[in-house]
C-alpha cells in the first residue's frame, strides 16, 4: 500500500514534469515574440524586450538542458572576474553561508542556553529579540558595509544575523521547556550543572534546537543570493545578477535550478541531523 503510494507519486511527478516541459517547449518554440498588445515600443525597449526581437529571450527546455550539461562538465573554470564556473560561484556562496551560519551557531546555542535557563534573562532579552527578529537581514547591509568596509565579510555578517534569531529563539525555548521531571532526576542524582547541561538539557532540547538550525539554514540560503546581488564580486547571487545583465536568461534559469538543488541538500542534511537527535516519548 505504502509502496504503491510512493510508486504512484513518483509516476505523477514524472507526468507533471513532462507536461511542464512540454508546455514550456510549446510556449518558447513559437519563434518571434509579439509585444504585449498596446505596449509602447519605446517602453518595451526600456524593459529590454527590444534587444531580443526576432527571437524569444526565453530559452527552450533543450537549450537549458544543454546549458546545464555544459556547466556540469566544467563547473570550476575561472576566466576572470565575470566568467567563473557555476561550481566556483556556488562554492563561494556555500562557504559564506557556512561561515556566517557556524558563527551564528557558536553564538546562538550558548546564548540560547543561558537565556533558556534564566527566566530573568528570558524576559529581559525578549523585547530586543522580538524587535530584531522581523528585520530583513538585508537592512543590516549598509550598516555592515559602513562598519566592516569589506563586502565579502559584510555578506557573511548578514548571514550571521539572519541565522541567529531562529536558533537563538528555539534554543532558549527548548532549554526553558525541558521537562521538570527530567531535571529532577538529575537533581536527585546530584548531577552537577555542567554534566546536567550536557546529559539532560542538551539531549532534551536537541530536537527543538535542530528545528531552529534547520529554519536558519533555509533563511541563510535565501538571503545569500540577495546579499551577493548587492555586494557583487563572487557567489551565485552575483552570477544571477551578472547573467541578467548579460541578458542570458538561460543561465539565470540554470542558476535557479542549482540554487534550488543546493538549498535542498542543505535542508536534507539538517533534517537528517534532526532525525538523529529526535526521541520518541
Amino acid at each position: 500500500m505504502l509502496k504503491s503510494l510512493s510508486w504512484r507519486a513518483a509516476t505523477l511527478s514524472v507526468v507533471l514534469f513532462v507536461l511542464f516541459v512540454g508546455a514550456w517547449q510549446l510556449a518558447t518554440s513559437g519563434g518571434s515574440t509579439a509585444l504585449p498588445p498596446g505596449m509602447d515600443p519605446e517602453y518595451a525597449k526600456l524593459l529590454g524586450l527590444g534587444a531580443t526581437q526576432g527571437k524569444s529571450a526565453m530559452p527552450t527546455p533543450l537549450e537549458v538542458g544543454a546549458k546545464i550539461w555544459g556547466h556540469l562538465r566544467d563547473p570550476f573554470y575561472d576566466r576572470g572576474t565575470n566568467d567563473k564556473g557555476i561550481g566556483i560561484q556556488l562554492a563561494y556562496s556555500v562557504a559564506r553561508v557556512a561561515l556566517g551560519y557556524l558563527i551564528a551557531v557558536a553564538v546562538a546555542i550558548p546564548l540560547g542556553f543561558l537565556i533558556g535557563m534564566s527566566p530573568l534573562l528570558y524576559r529581559a532579552l525578549d523585547p530586543f529579540i522580538q524587535i530584531m527578529k522581523p528585520v530583513s537581514p538585508l537592512a543590516w547591509m549598509p550598516l555592515a558595509l559602513y562598519t566592516i568596509k569589506d563586502s565579502s565579510t559584510s555578506a557573511i555578517f548578514v548571514i550571521f544575523i539572519c541565522s541567529l534569531w531562529p536558533m537563538l529563539i528555539n534554543t532558549a525555548f527548548g532549554v526553558a521547556s525541558v521537562r521538570k521531571e527530567w531535571l529532577n532526576v538529575a537533581r536527585t542524582l546530584e548531577v552537577g550543572p555542567v554534566r546536567r547541561a550536557f546529559t539532560v538539557i542538551l539531549p532534551a532540547a536537541a530536537p527543538t534546537i535542530l528545528t531552529g538550525m534547520r529554519i536558519s539554514i533555509g533563511i541563510a540560503w535565501l538571503v545569500i543570493v540577495a546579499a551577493e546581488m548587492l555586494v557583487g564580486g563572487t557567489g551565485i547571487g552575483y552570477f544571477v545578477w551578472n547573467e541578467w545583465n548579460n541578458l542570458s536568461i538561460t543561465n539565470v534559469i540554470v542558476a535557479i535550478l542549482f540554487i534550488g538543488v543546493v538549498g535542498m541538500v542543505l535542508d536534507l542534511m539538517l533534517a537528517r541531523a534532526a532525525r538523529a537527535v529526535t526521541y520518541p516519548e
Binding site: 521531571e181 527530567w182 529532577n184 532526576v185 537533581r187 536527585t188 542524582l189 546530584e190 539532560v200 539531549p203 532534551a204 537527535v277 526521541y279 520518541p280 516519548e281
Partner: peptide, 18 residues
C-alpha cells in the same frame, strides 16, 4: 537539597527517553 542517599521513584516514571 537532594542526595544520592535518597532515591526517588517518580509518579510518572521520569525515564530519559533518549
Amino acid at each position: 537539597g537532594p542526595s544520592l542517599d535518597r532515591a526517588v521513584i517518580f509518579q510518572g516514571h521520569a525515564l530519559l527517553p533518549w
